[in-house]
Design a protein around this nucleic acid. Structure first.
Lengths: 187, 187
DNA sequence: TTTAAATCTAAGCGTTTGCTTAGTTATCTT
DNA sequence: AAGATAACTAAGCAAACGCTTAGATTTAAA
């Protein structure tokens, strides 16, 4: 056998995710990834094939983080995720110490072109659908709501959370809290 | 004196705006602008100084278009802009024939970094504030609303319209219409 | 008709991009 | 201890980026 990797792949992806998140996909260069991840280009390409590979792993890690938040909310609420609580956690997670970076996925949906990075777009759309499904299954708890009303409100909530991703870059925490409150008085 | 310009500056900016809108700021190269605008690099730099200059003019043109829609709504409604109607026109304008391109300004806010393009960000923030002011002045028509409620609802509407910019890239026209309906049941 | 000035074309500048390759170093098996 | 193999370093590749420059062409005033 031979030499061992001097780095842990999940640890360097965590750093890469942070950089992509702050910086956007295209604007993040492989040279910047080198510095942030603490390994050089050869190692990056050896572990993740190419820049897109690093990004796809970053999205996986992002998903994992957001899902562990979801699971915590679920466990503290009889197996049901409270959507309002999810919203609050979403914007807290989206800002995570440093403000004005929005949601990694929303940022990238807005930036990347389907024709140029189809593999990336597939992952991002999956992600969006998972969140929408979460809204749907929560709204269905209320038997009084018709199926079409559930779909309509799920879209409304998706719109609100997409908005929050951008709004989190320009508004104060208080304003964001108010927005969430008003958003839910409708349901 | 000397030779005359073979092109009309507003006409070529119109074309440039369309390209930036579809494509994003960074992803639009000067070579692409050459083809779209139908003039070559020398002329672009002579008329607009640099790529940023072309973009700033494009935003001006975009603003002008959106404001003329606003003025029409104003004139057909006793000098007051109905916000709901503004929303409908906003998403129609945002899709404008070809779907999935969102709002030029929202797209760019999401993409451009304040440190790298401060002049661009100044313009974009001005634009966002103008729209928010429109919401505020409309909401103030209702004397029963307190000042703080007006501010809160204005933020809520900003969030919804930011969301719509992204949502217009992923949702159907029907879904977008539904989202707008639910958004306004609160106000 | 001449002349001066602005507009055009097209080539090319230096820099940065994602990615590769040649050559060295470390570590596991035998 | 020796040899094999994978991980490392660092240099460099072609292509694309924003922008500039040299030189030809057009136009309007003198």
């Amino acid at each position: 056998m031979a030499r061992k990797k001097q780095y842990n792949e999940e640890e360097v992806i965590k750093k890469a995710m942070s950089l992509f998140w702050r910086n956007g996909y295209e604007a993040t260069t492989v040279r910047m990834l080198e510095k942030e991840m603490g390994i050089n280009q050869f190692s990056i390409y050896a572990s993740f094939k190419n820049k897109q590979g690093v990004f796809l792993e970053s999205v996986k890690y992002y998903k994992k983080q957001l899902n562990s938040i979801k699971d915590k909310l679920k466990n503290s609420n009889n197996g049901v995720v409270g959507i309002k609580e999810y919203f609050y956690n979403f914007i807290t997670f989206s800002t995570e110490g440093q403000i004005r970076k929005g949601c990694l996925v929303t940022n990238t949906v807005n930036e990347v072109k389907e024709e140029e990075e189809p593999e990336v777009m597939v992952e991002l759309k999956k992600f969006a659908n998972e969140i929408r499904d979460l809204f749907v299954s929560n709204l269905k708890q209320d038997d009084k709501k018709s199926n079409s009303l559930v779909q309509q409100q799920a879209d409304y909530l998706m719109n609100a959370i997409l908005g929050l991703s951008i709004a989190s870059k320009m508004f104060t925490k208080e304003q964001l809290d108010n927005i969430i409150e008003v958003t839910f008085t409708n349901l």
